[in-house]
Design a protein around this nucleic acid. Structure first.
Length: 162
RNA sequence: CAAGAAGGUUGGACAAUCGCGAGAUUUUAUCUCGAGGAAAGUCCGGGCACUAUAGAGCAGAAUGCCAGCUAACGGCUGGGCGGUGGAAGCCGACGGAAAGUGCAGCAGAGAGUAGACCGCCAAUUUAUUGGUAAGGGUGAAAGGGUGCGGUAAGAGCGCACCGCACAGCGGGUAACCGUUUGUGGCAAGGUAAACCCCAUUCAGUGCAAGACCAAAUAGGAAAACACGUUUGAGCUUAGCUUAAACAAGGUGCGGCUCGUACCUGGUUUUCGGGUAGGUUGCUUGAGGGAAGUAGUGAUGCUUCUCCUAGAUGAAUGAUUGUUACCAGCAAUGGUACAGAACCCGGCUUAUAGACCUUCUUGCUUU
């Protein structure tokens, strides 16, 4: 069921096959993107920023922290300083939401805060999406969720756990 | 047809799939709705809300030809005046310079109670004195213009015409305009987006207003005990009770001053509390469309009709296909400015392309 809907929606778009990774299939089987998948309160953002791993490339910067949940959560922090016009900010935010929605199974278990970068308004949608997907692969490879942090930042043993 | 002027409309379309926000319902799946002409800048004006219904004086800010429209305006409409253009048109902070203060490079004799450098005239001591604003020269600007008279030479010194000012008369609600009328020889310049004067207007803060529900923490209120100075009164008189006044301090009234309102440190007990968060304010409104009607017009009135975003780490999107327009031989590429945040009326700024209406001038044809 999942595969069918998935193939119909963006089968030819996504070059990487998500199903190779053995992710737990949760109740959020379809590509919904409801409010529970977002970071809403300042406390949520503080939680991510407190102990975070940073992923970035030419266009995007992600702040990532495992959240011990079975689903990912997305927060958007597109600053006016980087993207002055609200049209630009809206476009970047919608693009980030849409791409996150399509790949949310690959990101389950992470809280991600997306930061904007200067000059994004001159890049077309296709390039930004490809760039976003590249970072998703990087997060998957890092294995952050399984307690293997990258070398730079040490995670304290008192990290929040059930 | 060409060149130009004024104003207006539109702001690609349709479909499929996957999504997002809100609402409804037969409640978990369907249906309906979901950015703009500027949503922008936050420059004005109002509604709405709260604050002591906001006192007086001073200071401050804004506006500035006249009349009208409007909830209101610094907006709009009509008119006047000035400037500009061949015309349609366009532009104008457009009150006061005989209340006062200030400002102005260079040139020039003199630039603000005018002025004698050259020139002209007169006198004599022959290089000086006096008269003179016609002429020359300087300058952005030199104290009305032309002519005749007049004079030593000149000068509104006198006269005629033109111009100007004031008065009268006529028109206009007014700004202002006209004048075959009268008076005056005629004013001592500019600048008030320099101070200033005059007239009119202005309480402040903005939906993170405000209301309600409410984890936490401190403060808060009430009662009891204790409690500054002076004076009066009473009593059981080194004391106690009570009243008044005086301080001193704090808070608030847009800035300053005056004025004015309220409050007062400690301990104990009780009451209650309003930050995070949530709900609400929150979209039916000076609303849009059509017709009629009054008015030159802005706009008003009447009838019918429509309900078309309401988010809050913030929805309104992504992909594909067909198609429209533009560029290119083609493949293809591009389709502006730009995103609601309490709501309206304006102003200003940004805006690819397409379309419409009216007007001016020129050319051609009939």
């Amino acid at each position: 069921m999942i595969n069918n809907t998935h193939q119909n929606s963006d089968g030819e778009l996504s070059s990487l096959s998500l199903d190779e990774l053995e992710l737990p299939h949760q109740d959020f089987s379809r590509n919904h993107f409801s409010k529970s998948l977002r970071l809403l309160s300042p406390q949520d953002f503080q939680f991510v920023f407190a102990q975070a791993e940073k992923f970035s490339n030419r266009h995007w910067t992600f702040i990532v922290r495992p959240n011990d949940k079975r689903y990912p959560r997305l927060g958007l922090a597109i600053a006016k300083k980087q993207l002055a016009k609200s049209v630009w900010r809206n476009r970047v935010k919608r693009l980030a939401r849409e791409t996150f929605r399509q790949h949310k199974q690959a990101l389950s278990g992470y809280d991600i805060v997306v930061l904007g970068r200067r000059g994004m308004q001159d890049v077309d949608n296709e390039t930004l999406i490809k760039s976003f997907e590249h970072l998703i692969r990087k997060i998957q490879k890092s294995g952050l969720k399984d307690g293997k942090p990258m070398t730079k930042t040490k995670k304290s043993p008192t990290q929040r756990s059930k």
